[in-house]
Amino acid sequence: MDPHLLRTFVAVLDHRSFSGAAASLGYTQSAVSQHIAALEADLGSRLVERRPVAPTPAGARLLEHAPALLLRLDAARADIARLHQARPTHLTLAASPAALGPTVARALAELRATAHALDVEVRVLGREAVLSDVVGGRADLGFVDGAAAPSDPLPMPDLGPTTTLAAAEETLAVLFPLGHPLAGRRTVRLTDLAQAQWIDAPDTAVPLDRLRTVCRTDGFRPWIRHRGTDLHGLAALAAAGHGLAALPLPVAAALPGIAAVPVSEPRLVHRIELVHPVNPTAPARQLADLIGGRAGSRA
């Protein structure tokens, strides 16, 4: 299966348009049509309905495999490229919004204190984009966050040859408007809030599907959707009564206009994990060692 054809297939279905895919990939619309036709001929099955553009049953099945396949191809290319890199003086760090907290900031300060010429770039991205940038070689290491039972790892996709380690575990909290009846509580139980109005903010707060999984309920339905990585925008929505959200207590407590109430049940923590390639650059390895030392000193 030609990966160029597969990328075109994914772009067509992402944009729900042959012309949109062509613009994003830098191809002509005719070339996009030829790619889809060639992929369908290779697999012996129609993959894309043309009017309107949508996946056929076979296309939907292929779409389940495509992101992982393309991610592994990017990982292989980046892994080989790193073998030929000179000693780097640049560090690119990708992090989901709630993962970029005090633990990461302090470790980065320690690293820069010993590597004065190091040029650092920090990117705040959604969780999937963080992992994609690390695996694809666009970031030297990444930090992602989520809710988990104490000492349990976060659920991750197959990232190929990468290393993952715990960076921090923090108290999980729910954001309430200041006038909410539960805003003054010392703790709350998530299961009691399953039927409340929630903000669906998968790249910023704990995703609602994760809350449904850990609480074993079909609740936690979105009242409003927030897309992006703006924590203050999320807090503004919560403060105005548009719904609840779950964030780590240290991050939530610093946001204006809301009350951050710790979660008592189920027994969960907000967990931050570091991900880097198995052959990281020297600055990335140094930062990982600093983070590992901090995590070990807390254990």
Results as ranks from 00 to 15, higher is better:
residue 3 P to N: 01
residue 4 H to M: 12
residue 4 H to C: 11
residue 10 V to K: 12
residue 15 H to W: 06
residue 15 H to K: 14
residue 22 A to K: 13
residue 23 A to H: 11
residue 24 S to M: 13
residue 24 S to Q: 13
residue 27 Y to H: 15
residue 27 Y to T: 14
residue 32 V to D: 10
residue 34 Q to C: 03
residue 40 E to L: 03
residue 42 D to P: 02
residue 48 V to H: 03
residue 50 R to H: 11
residue 52 P to K: 04
residue 55 P to K: 00
residue 59 G to Q: 07
residue 61 R to V: 00
residue 61 R to M: 00
residue 62 L to E: 05
residue 63 L to M: 08
residue 64 E to W: 13
residue 65 H to E: 15
residue 66 A to I: 06
residue 67 P to L: 02
residue 69 L to P: 07
residue 71 L to W: 06
residue 72 R to H: 14
residue 73 L to V: 08
residue 78 A to N: 07
residue 86 A to P: 10
residue 87 R to F: 00
residue 89 T to N: 14
residue 92 T to A: 10
residue 94 A to E: 03
residue 97 P to C: 01
residue 100 L to N: 12
residue 101 G to E: 14
residue 101 G to S: 13
residue 107 A to F: 00
residue 108 L to M: 07
residue 109 A to R: 14
residue 109 A to E: 13
residue 111 L to S: 07
residue 114 T to N: 02
residue 115 A to M: 11
residue 116 H to T: 10
residue 117 A to S: 14
residue 117 A to L: 11
residue 118 L to K: 08
residue 121 E to L: 03
residue 122 V to A: 02
residue 126 G to W: 04
residue 129 A to W: 01
residue 130 V to E: 10
residue 131 L to V: 11
residue 132 S to W: 09
residue 137 G to Q: 02
residue 141 L to F: 02
residue 143 F to A: 09
residue 146 G to P: 07
residue 151 S to W: 08
residue 152 D to S: 13
residue 153 P to E: 06
residue 155 P to T: 00
residue 156 M to Y: 00
residue 158 D to T: 08
residue 158 D to I: 04
residue 164 T to C: 01
residue 165 L to S: 14
residue 167 A to E: 09
residue 173 A to C: 01
residue 173 A to H: 02
residue 173 A to N: 04
residue 176 F to C: 00
residue 180 H to T: 13
residue 183 A to W: 02
residue 184 G to R: 09
residue 185 R to I: 00
residue 185 R to N: 02
residue 186 R to D: 13
residue 188 V to H: 15
residue 191 T to W: 06
residue 195 Q to W: 15
residue 196 A to R: 15
residue 206 V to D: 04
residue 207 P to M: 00
residue 212 R to P: 11
residue 212 R to M: 03
residue 213 T to P: 00
residue 215 C to R: 08
residue 218 D to H: 10
residue 219 G to M: 03
residue 221 R to P: 00
residue 224 I to M: 07
residue 225 R to I: 06
residue 226 H to Y: 00
residue 235 A to W: 15
residue 235 A to G: 05
residue 241 G to S: 08
residue 244 L to D: 11
residue 245 A to W: 04
residue 245 A to C: 08
residue 247 L to V: 04
residue 247 L to F: 03
residue 248 P to W: 05
residue 249 L to S: 10
residue 259 A to E: 12
residue 261 V to F: 05
residue 263 V to S: 06
residue 265 E to F: 04
residue 266 P to A: 01
residue 267 R to H: 06
residue 267 R to L: 09
residue 268 L to V: 13
residue 269 V to K: 03
residue 270 H to Y: 15
residue 270 H to S: 13
residue 272 I to H: 03
residue 272 I to Q: 05
residue 274 L to G: 07
residue 275 V to P: 10
residue 278 V to S: 11
residue 281 T to A: 12
residue 283 P to C: 01
residue 286 Q to H: 12
residue 291 I to F: 02
residue 291 I to K: 09
residue 293 G to Y: 06
residue 295 A to R: 15
residue 299 A to C: 08
